[in-house]
Design a protein around this nucleic acid. Structure first.
Lengths: 175, 175
DNA sequence: TTTTCCATGTAACTCGTTACATGATTTC
DNA sequence: GAAATCATGTAACGAGTTACATGGAAAA
């Protein structure tokens, strides 16, 4: 659902063709959403069939370039956008972290090795945080999203550090 | 991959049959992993074919009950477990939050409505935190996982509160 | 009498990804 | 001459879920 919301939200600002949409998402939303090209095209087609979008075949902008299909939001699409947006905002989907599975079995490893592996994870986390912090300010509410990303990464880093700090206490992890 | 790691880690403690595994996961790991029954059975079968597990057909424990298949870790399974565990611990997979999509378009809603919707989200988040905090202590490294859950939920709640606090400043969200 | 529990699955489906095809045009 | 850019797709695949089937026994 949230991929449809994303496309609708972008098309609401101004109509675009699929390639453009994919570019915008890759370029300025890569941290919070990734939408592959075939997925984007398929979703656009499906939403057009539902009547949420109209598809306009446009001739090539420059010669030698393929023609493009411009998608525009319909009133039904606008209604769907608001419905999806309200549902998304009012809902909380509990997140399940793939990294937690390993943590559940941390006590099956010698503490020294556990420590070393988690140090690797810490380095990757720190990189991600640095990348997120270096991002230029975004327009409008997009800034809220990158702000949330940063907050989450900082929180994860702090927690991992606290885990590392209490880790190697003579082999007893839970003490 | 992390579902396989989960099953291997549980089977490493003691051999079990599929139904039992699913019960354990639902009961004491529901917060950090959910694994449906058909998925569990399919994974067990696949790992048995790979030689990571051996499958023992056991007669019914009580009469009238169906027979069960007990899965036991092989040395290959033990090796796979350690490989998957090391990879999981040393890696960080950036999380993408479904709830962020809506936030990216928060400025398309009247601030009062945005506020009301996010209050709903806040209530769900608070519920989740209460549930996680009420959970009894878990054995061994499982406690680390619920600890991480709690930390994350607290962090999310704090961030959402900070967002709500700076939200309705005369309609300009980014100020 | 209907429902629930045990224990195992199968079949169909959704969702999304990867890899590839097309075809002209510009860049290395 | 090879590779990248634009713009659209198709085909195959993978992972996971939902809904259902089975069949006897115990509980509501």
């Amino acid at each position: 659902m949230e991929r449809e919301l994303l496309l609708l939200g972008l098309l609401r600002r101004h109509s675009m063709h699929g390639y453009q949409l994919h570019e915008v998402i890759q370029r300025s939303l890569a941290s919070c959403a990734d939408l592959k090209k075939p997925t984007a095209y398929a979703l656009l087609e499906r939403m057009a069939q539902r009547g949420w979008l109209t598809a306009h075949e446009e001739p090539a902008p420059e010669r030698g370039r393929p023609p493009r299909t411009r998608y525009t939001l319909t009133p039904d699409g606008e209604a769907a956008y608001h419905r999806l947006l309200r549902e998304n905002l009012a809902t909380y989907q509990p997140t399940t972290f793939p990294g937690e599975t390993g943590l559940a079995f941390l006590d099956t490893l010698p503490p020294a090795e556990a420590r070393a592996l988690l140090q690797d994870r810490r380095a990757l986390l720190a990189d991600a945080l640095a990348a997120a912090s270096a991002a230029p300010p975004h327009e409008g509410a997009l800034q809220i999203v990158v702000d949330h990303q940063r907050h989450h990464l900082r929180s994860e880093l702090a927690w991992l550090d606290s885990l590392l700090a209490r880790l190697p206490a003579q082999g007893d992890i839970t003490s």
